[in-house]
């Protein structure tokens, strides 16, 4: 527990490290982090036109749907995938200092929030273009985002611990996230397969839904809310126990 508290105390360091990561990745490129924005924007436009034809849905409804879906999915998937290297990348620092281990987890989370901020531009642009009304419900998406972030952090923590112990895990996670992209209603509407276990048992569906539904002007489904809140509680208990039993070992795994 103290480790988590200390990690928050050093939040400035977390932000500095996360910011430095972004700078390092895009140094020397003209668009910088907006490259991700550009990529997602192109994907949104392309998939939006194509799939709205395939599914026979109007651009008016489909493009905002997929824009929100892609941006949110990118955030979920990147946080989990990058979680695999959260500790491995920090091996040098962890071996020599008493800096708390969860700090490097927060670094991944903050890094992806920064990326998300760049991506939000797409959602805003698309919504303005298609005149998607902002309502009181839209604000609920912030609640969704907060809950999803809480969930992502425990998933990333488990993934980070496992990846430092077992070097196969990063590959497994990458494969799983790729698979999950197609199994989760990012491109297609969950209404078409309502009630199917692929949707009802898919935790990613609920995370996606918690942010996307209110964004598109729907009410935050109480079921979604219940699922992600319980997922957050159970997940954090498990992650916390695993962390408590491995924290002394993590530095040796590296």
């Amino acid at each position: 527990m103290r480790d988590f508290k200390r990690s928050f105390i050093t939040f400035r360091l977390v932000i500095a490290l996360a910011y430095q990561d972004i700078l390092a990745k895009y140094r020397g490129s003209i668009l910088g982090p907006f490259w991700i924005t550009a990529t997602t924007a192109a994907l949104t436009a392309g998939l939006g036109v194509l799939y709205s034809k395939i599914f026979g849905v109007g651009l008016q409804t489909y493009v905002p749907f997929i824009a929100a879906g892609l941006v949110i999915w990118g955030f979920i998937s990147a946080t989990i995938t990058e979680g695999t290297n959260a500790f491995n990348d920090a091996a040098g620092i962890l071996r020599q200092t008493s800096l708390p281990i969860p700090l490097f987890l927060l670094r991944v989370a903050v890094r992806n929030w920064i990326v998300l901020l760049h991506q939000v531009i797409i959602i805003i642009a698309v919504f303005l273009y298609f005149r998607v009304p902002f309502s009181a419900y839209s604000l609920m998406s912030f609640v969704g985002l907060a809950l999803v972030s809480i969930n992502l952090t425990w998933i990333a923590l488990l993934v980070a611990i496992l990846s430092s112990r077992f070097r196969d895990v990063p590959q497994v996670i990458t494969a799983v996230m790729q698979f999950a992209l197609f199994m989760t209603p990012v491109f297609w509407s969950p209404n078409k397969v309502a009630g199917h276990p692929l949707v009802t048992l898919n935790p990613f569906y609920y995370m996606l839904d918690a942010i996307r539904a209110p964004l598109l002007g729907a009410r935050l489904d109480p079921k979604t809310l219940t699922v992600i809140v319980s997922l957050a509680i159970v997940g954090w208990i498990v992650a916390f126990l695993v962390y408590a039993s491995t924290r002394r070992r993590v530095v040796h795994y590296l």
Partner: peptide, 9 residues
């Protein structure tokens, strides 16, 4: 030294 630095529990 690393234990004193707090890296190893």
């Amino acid at each position: 030294l690393r234990a004193l630095a707090g890296a190893y529990a």
